[in-house]
Design a protein around this nucleic acid. Structure first.
Lengths: 202, 202
DNA sequence: ACAATAAAGTTGACACTGTCAACTTTATTT
DNA sequence: AAATAAAGTTGACAGTGTCAACTTTATTGT
């Protein structure tokens, strides 16, 4: 199927890896399979990635970059709370439309963060987008409050995204539709919590 | 080290599997290694578990049962909101003191839920504990509202737990301590959101 | 009590994996 | 054009899951 010669094997490995993860899950990902599908010897990929984890770290790094781009391209709004809502929406949209990438970033199969600083640099950048949006809610807040709120929002987003795709929720016999009802309501509750807390300080 | 004969190999496999996961992570778990450490042939475990995934499903099932027990043994309280706070505390305590078990249940390495109904039965039971606590907040609410709130609370809990152990947060250069500051504040925000929403309906 | 049967455990094989080492080919540099 | 580095190949090894056939141990029915 991939008879023509591969121009850039390093890039081709990443593309093929994503396909394999999409088709068979991350457990089934093997460098040998990548090589086989690209019509190349089983050792060729090792000339570009020292081992399996290095390849995964590179993929995750790009996922974070792609994720940041997606968050940055949300609709503009000059109302900070509306903007935060847009951000939440963009977050979940990403988790739903690119479940592979999302689970690579936030699933438990993440490569050891300490070993891959470039990967984590991209991760911090994504988090800073959320912090910036929360800062605009109330610029009189100190950095701790902002971080606390950011972690709160991120936790809920992360939790909902996880529930949405981990087919766990599908097995809970819920009477309510997740995407159309539960998620918007949950976003409402985040807004309520943040507004109440801002009012408290005022 | 385990020279004396194993009495119940099925149980011994599970114990040894948990040890291996604790020592080396779930990726390193192999049935052959379990067999070797128990001083038994490499095929012996297969007489008790058809394959690797069946063993994992059995482990996860027990984790959910243990999790439910832990949630049920939280301090009693006749104030529903306080009880929900205790529940949240118990949830996070479990995630922090038994990170292995927690990540087995909620990590991405979960065995296919559809294939293991017994496992999911235990999962539903754990979820029902949360639903019950939320029902007591306002017994005039309909089932949908309760489920929505339960998902909201669960999402935030799940997200925070994930952030707490996924070493992701440790790499974000946060200025605030997670356990002592950020988590209690986040629980506050959950309470605020739920109270505001109950007041709205009243 | 004892033969029949099922369960538990062993041994051997196979295809698959990651990874090391040595080699050949191709591209780059000087 | 020679020297050198990069990219790709081939072969090997230990580890893995799992199938099949076998032996040992327990259970069971009569």
């Amino acid at each position: 199927m991939n008879a023509e010669k591969v121009i850039n094997l390093g890039e081709a490995c990443i593309e093929e890896a994503l396909k394999i993860v999409a088709e068979q899950g991350i457990e089934q990902l093997s460098l040998r399979d990548i090589a086989r599908r690209l019509g190349v010897s089983h050792q060729a990929p090792y000339k570009h990635y020292a081992n399996r984890e290095h390849l995964l770290a590179e993929i995750v790094k790009r996922c974070f970059a792609d994720f940041s781009n997606h968050l940055d391209s949300r609709p503009e709004s000059c109302h900070p709370m509306e903007d935060l809502g847009n951000l939440g929406h963009a977050y979940l949209t990403y988790a739903l439309t690119k479940p592979l990438q999302y689970s690579l970033m936030f699933g438990s199969s993440l490569p050891d963060p300490g070993k891959y600083p470039e990967m984590m640099k991209q991760a911090r950048h994504a988090f800073s987008i959320l912090k910036d949006a929360i800062t605009r809610l109330d610029d009189k807040k100190n950095i701790s409050e902002i971080e606390i709120n950011a972690l709160f929002v991120w936790s809920t987003m992360h939790g909902m995204a996880g529930i949405l795709q981990n087919h766990v929720a599908g097995q809970l016999n819920l009477s309510v539709d997740l995407k159309t009802v539960a998620i918007p309501k949950a976003l409402d509750r985040i807004r309520i919590a943040l507004e109440a807390q801002i009012a408290n300080l005022a």
